[in-house]
C-alpha cells in the first residue's frame, strides 16, 4: 500500500500543465466559443507531439503504455484549463477501445490525424461529434466504430463543449472491445475533469476575494466568505483521492472485477460531481455580480462545471450504481 504518485507521473502532468498554460489560456477557451468548430488552433497536434494522445495505447501499437493512474492527472489539467478539445473521449476511452479491438483506426488516432469521440450509452447525443472523424458507439452489449454520420448541432450552455445529435453513418463492430470498461473510463475521465474544474474555480475565487475590497477590507477576510471557500477546499480534498483510487481499479482488472471497478468509478464521479457543483455555487456567490457576467472568465469554468457534473451520469445516478454494488436494492 503506497498511495503516492511517482516523479514520472508528476513530470508528465507538469508538461501538460505547461502546454495548456501556454496554448490554452482563458482567451483561447473564449475564442473557441466564436469559432465554427470550438477547437483551439494547433493544440491537438501539440498533444499528439508530446505523446498525450498516445499515452494509453499499448507500446507495441506505438503508444506509451501508460496507465489510468497517470492519465487522470492529465484530465485534471484539462478541467483546470477548461480545454475545449475532446481529449478525454479520444485518448482515455476511444483509443483503449480501438486497441482492444485491434482496429485499423488506431494508428491515425494515436498520430492525432483523426479525432474520435464517444457515444458511450448509445443515446445519439454526442460531445464534439461535429468536429470528430468517427465515434466509438455503444451498440447492444458491445462497441462499434461509426463514420460518415450526419449531425445536428445542439446549442449547449458551454459553447466550448458542443453536443450534436447524430444520425446514420457507417458502423463497424469493434470486436474485443469492452463496452462496460469504456463506460467506466468515460465516467472516471469526467470525474477527473470535475476535480480540475473545482480546483480552478477555487483558485480563481481565492485570488478574487483576497483582492476585492468592501468596507475597507478584502472580502476574503470575512468569515462568511472564508467558510464558503473552506467547504470547497474540503470537498475537493475528499473527492480527488477517490478519483485516483478508481483509476487504480481500472488499471488493475486482475484484482478488480467489473462490479468493484464500477463501484470505485461511481464513488469517484459522485464525489467529484458534488465537489464541482459546490465549487461552482460558492465561486459565483463569492465573486458577486462580476461573476454573473459573460465578460468575466469565471463563466467559462462555471459552464464546464455544470456540463461535466451531469455528463456521463450525475452524482445521484452514480450513488445508485454504488448502491447496487454494495448490496442495497
Amino acid at each position: 500500500m503506497r498511495f503516492e504518485f511517482t516523479d514520472e507521473h508528476d513530470m508528465f502532468r507538469n508538461t501538460v500543465r505547461d502546454l495548456f498554460a501556454d496554448r490554452c489560456p482563458p482567451d483561447a477557451v473564449r475564442a473557441s466559443w466564436e469559432t465554427t468548430d470550438a477547437r483551439v488552433p494547433d493544440l491537438w497536434g501539440a498533444l499528439a507531439e508530446i505523446g498525450v494522445l498516445a499515452a494509453l495505447a499499448p507500446e507495441e501499437a506505438g503508444g506509451l503504455g501508460m496507465d489510468e493512474v497517470a492519465f487522470v492527472r492529465i484530465l485534471e489539467e484539462v478541467g483546470y484549463a477548461a480545454v475545449p478539445e475532446p481529449l478525454m473521449e479520444h485518448a482515455f476511452v476511444a483509443i483503449p477501445a480501438l486497441a482492444e479491438a485491434r482496429s485499423d483506426a488506431l494508428d491515425s488516432a494515436i498520430a492525432g490525424s483523426t479525432t474520435i469521440t464517444i457515444d458511450i450509452d448509445g443515446s445519439g447525443t454526442v460531445a464534439s461529434a461535429a468536429i470528430a472523424d468517427a465515434i466509438v458507439t455503444r451498440v447492444d452489449d458491445g462497441l462499434a466504430f461509426t463514420t460518415q454520420y450526419d449531425t445536428t448541432a445542439l446549442t449547449t450552455i458551454d459553447q466550448s463543449r458542443r453536443l450534436a445529435a447524430v444520425k446514420g453513418g457507417v458502423t463497424v463492430g469493434l470486436d474485443g472491445a469492452d463496452a462496460a470498461l469504456a463506460y467506466d473510463r468515460a465516467v472516471l475521465g469526467a470525474a477527473a475533469q470535475c476535480i480540475g474544474i473545482a480546483r480552478r474555480l477555487l483558485d480563481a475565487t481565492v485570488a478574487y476575494v483576497g483582492d476585492r475590497q468592501q468596507f475597507g477590507k478584502p472580502v476574503g477576510s470575512y468569515q462568511a466568505v472564508k467558510h464558503h471557500l473552506a467547504d470547497v477546499r474540503i470537498a475537493v480534498e475528499f473527492a480527488a483521492p477517490l478519483v485516483y483510487r478508481a483509476a487504480w481499479s481500472v488499471a488493475h482488472p486482475e484484482t478488480h472485477e467489473p462490479l468493484a471497478r464500477a463501484r470505485d468509478v461511481s464513488m469517484a464521479k459522485a464525489q467529484a460531481s458534488d465537489a464541482v457543483d459546490l465549487a461552482a455555487r460558492k465561486a459565483l456567490q463569492c465573486h458577486g455580480a462580476i461573476g454573473y457576467t459573460f465578460e468575466y472568465d469565471l463563466q467559462l469554468w462555471l459552464k464546464r462545471a455544470w456540463a461535466l457534473s451531469a455528463a456521463y451520469g450525475d452524482a445521484r445516478r452514480h450513488r445508485d450504481r454504488v448502491a447496487t454494488a454494495i448490496g442495497l436494492a
Binding site: 476574503g220 472564508k226 477546499r233
Partner: peptide
C-alpha cells in the same frame, strides 16, 4: 474553517 481559509487557502486574517 477559519484555519483552512487562512492557513491552507491563504485568505487574509481578520
Amino acid at each position: 474553517r477559519n484555519i483552512i481559509a487562512e492557513r491552507v487557502l491563504g485568505l487574509p486574517r481578520r
